[in-house]
């Protein structure tokens, strides 16, 4: 695999790397907001991946862009809901630390 021209594998690796960074953030962050940021990176990388794959495998086909549109809408919905949960949670708890939120421990 060479640097040029940029092909499917380059895009896939880029998105994978971004996703893995998000994953790392998801696993390390203690604050709920930080988690949300990491998740946003992951969702975004997935959306880019879909667009890139469709674009490179079938140029001009709009399905990739359309699904990315839905991704974006879903991500927006998810963030709004997450914040809707997070804001009252942060008000009722001393901190937004997710490691302290273990009420569901068995």
């Amino acid at each position: 695999m060479s640097f040029f021209p940029v092909g499917i594998q380059h895009w896939l690796l880029l998105c994978l790397a971004l996703f893995s960074f998000g994953l790392y953030g998801l696993l390390t962050r203690r604050s709920a907001m930080g988690l949300l940021l990491a998740i946003e990176i992951m969702v975004n990388s997935a959306a880019v991946l879909v667009v890139a794959l469709i674009h490179l495998l079938h140029p001009g086909k709009l399905d990739g862009q359309l699904s990315a549109l839905f991704f974006i809408a879903l991500a927006a919905a998810e963030v709004v809901l997450a914040l809707g949960i997070y804001v009252p949670l942060a008000r009722s708890r001393p901190s937004g630390d997710v490691t302290q939120l273990n009420d569901l421990r068995g």
């Binding site: 907001m33 949300l36 914040l83 804001v87 901190s95 937004g96």
Partner: peptide, 26 residues
């Protein structure tokens, strides 16, 4: 429009509204 204009701004709002002293340093 959505991510930077909407989501980022929303996140910043949420952080500003709920900043807990202990988590400014995560």
């Amino acid at each position: 429009l959505v991510y930077i204009g909407g989501i980022s701004v929303l996140l910043i709002f949420a952080i500003m509204l709920t900043r807990g002293p202990d988590l400014l340093k995560d």
